[in-house]
Design a protein around this nucleic acid. Sequence first.
DNA 1: CACACAATACAAAGCAGTTGGTATTTTTTG
DNA 2: CAAAAAATACCAACTGCTTTGTATTGTGTG
Lengths: 213, 213
Amino acid sequence: MEMTGEKLSVIIADDHTLFINGLRMLLQNEPDIEIMNIAANGKELLGLLHTHSPDLILLDINMPVINGFDALKKIKSFYPKIKVIMLSTYNEEHLIEKAKAGGADGYLFKNVEKDELLQAMHSVGQGQLCFPHKTPVNNSVFDDSDSFLKQFQLTKRELELLQFIKQNYTNQQMADHLHLSIYTVETHRKNIMQKLNLKNPVELTKFIIQYDL
Amino acid sequence: MEMTGEKLSVIIADDHTLFINGLRMLLQNEPDIEIMNIAANGKELLGLLHTHSPDLILLDINMPVINGFDALKKIKSFYPKIKVIMLSTYNEEHLIEKAKAGGADGYLFKNVEKDELLQAMHSVGQGQLCFPHKTPVNNSVFDDSDSFLKQFQLTKRELELLQFIKQNYTNQQMADHLHLSIYTVETHRKNIMQKLNLKNPVELTKFIIQYDL
DNA sequence: CACACAATACAAAGCAGTTGGTATTTTTTG
DNA sequence: CAAAAAATACCAACTGCTTTGTATTGTGTG
């Protein structure tokens, strides 16, 4: 690829101008990176690719109009040579899997440090894949014994499941992931809902968001 | 306050390190601005304020643990002299009123340009308020023609349905309430989901909450 | 007056999750 | 050790919503 002397040409796709500007500043002093263009959403990005051919795209997942994953799919089918690093706000395991499945070359959280970013961009530019380690989601809410969740007396397993539910895993996905029967997952879920006194998935979603679990 | 020769000391509170780094780069060449510290969430920010006394805080609204508005409330009650500019994603104009009500000194969308940002920081630093011109007098997202919802081109009826969906009406309940066939409601809902590019009720719930519809 | 769009209505197949059970096995704990 | 609690597993009926269609009836605009 573009290793020998050549600059790595990059398109950034994100709907936050300030974030893009920040990235730009961050990268503009890098001798081997050239920011070719920017796009505010997936649609704009795909339009750009008609006339531009970057080596690498930094692609935000959460964009309006056409989201990151849909854009990724299109990019990889029409321009398979272009490397794509997905950017995401949150550490959601299944999103990483989805990115991998969609053919992304890398995945970064928006709270990475500069070095990590550059490192990732370079390795991906050289044809490597770059995905985060499977970190056991260390959400203080879940293992903090003083957590407000404590009052509901959820068991360990139930708390664990809640983390996956929070990340939009379906029952089937959780079953697969944890090597459980889907029936078991349903039972756990049933108990969780009972203990939290919730009636349906939407209420659970609201609960999770309201208390920032 | 700190106008005469003194630098404007600033704390940035945002959970995206990359964004912060960008801001930092953006601001570090400004002779009259000094970035004192950063915080990844509201909790951290409030901790910092025990030992630090900035002139100005750039405060992201969407943060984990303690969100921007809650942090704003605490800051303004404990340290009323500290100026606060709220940062928000571009499509949350309707939260401006909330920021004003909470005592913020300014409000910026994350897609502002550098000049605008600096301008705002300086005027707020000098004691002025700085809110976007486009102040929506409309308290309803749904009939505001400038609403961010406009981009999705929902029809009148679809917007109406969305209000009920927001209130957890089931399709059947909406049908009853509006004297429609449940099939009609399903059709509308289908079209809404398509236009918003959402896949299931949970995603819709998150969408509604995220953009505070 | 056409034409596009909005609003209405219908139907069958299917998916995800709930409800209300039952029933083992494993682990914890008094 | 014995009892309680947790984790596992199963099942069938049910609800709510989605998907993928089709189709008719207004309604406003060039």
